[in-house]
Computed example of a mutant assay.
Amino acid sequence: MRILLVEDDTLLGKGVSAGLVQAGWAVDWTLDGIDAETALHSICYDAVVLDLGLPGMDGLTLLGRLRASKHSIPVLVLTARETLADRVAGLDAGADDYLVKPFDLTELQARLRALLRRSKGATGPLLHHGRIVLDLTSHKVFLDSAPVELSAREFATLQELMMNAGRVRTRGQLEESLYGWGEEIGSNTIEVYIHNLRRKLYADLIRTIRGVGYTITAGNN
Rank of each mutant, 00 (worst) to 15 (best):
R87G: 06
A85Y: 12
Q109K: 04
D104H: 14
L99R: 07
A110P: 08
Y98K: 01
D97Q: 10
A95N: 02
D92I: 07
E82Q: 13
T123S: 15
L78A: 11
R87T: 11
D92G: 09
A110C: 07
D104Q: 10
G121W: 00
G124M: 10
L91R: 14
D86P: 02
E82V: 13
E82N: 11
P102K: 04
A114Q: 09
V88M: 06
D96I: 09
Q109E: 08
L108K: 04
D97R: 08
L91A: 11
K101P: 11
D92N: 13
L99Q: 03
K101G: 05
A114W: 04
V100W: 02
L78W: 09
D86M: 10
A114D: 08
D86A: 11
R117L: 03
A89M: 12
L91I: 12
G124N: 05
T79H: 11
K120L: 13
R81L: 14
R111C: 01
L105E: 09
A85R: 15
L84Y: 07
A80Y: 01
V88S: 06
Y98D: 00
P125R: 13
G90Y: 03
L116G: 15
D96P: 10
R111W: 03
R118P: 14
L99H: 06
V100G: 00
E82A: 09
L115W: 10
V100M: 03
A122Y: 15
A89T: 04
D97F: 03
A80Q: 00
A122R: 08
L105K: 06
R113Q: 06
D92M: 15
E107D: 03
Y98I: 02
L108I: 05
L112S: 04
A110Q: 06
L99V: 13
A114H: 13
A85K: 11
L112N: 03
F103A: 13
K120S: 10
V100D: 00
L105F: 08
Y98M: 01
S119T: 13
A80P: 00
E107G: 07
G94M: 01
P102R: 05
P102Y: 01
K120R: 15
P125F: 14
L84G: 02
Q109D: 03
L105R: 07
A93P: 12
S119G: 15
G90W: 02
K120Q: 10
F103G: 02
T83P: 09
S119I: 14
A95L: 14
L105S: 15
D104M: 09
L99K: 03
S119H: 12
V88P: 11
A80M: 00
L78M: 07
A89N: 08
A95C: 04
A110L: 08
L116S: 03
D92Q: 14
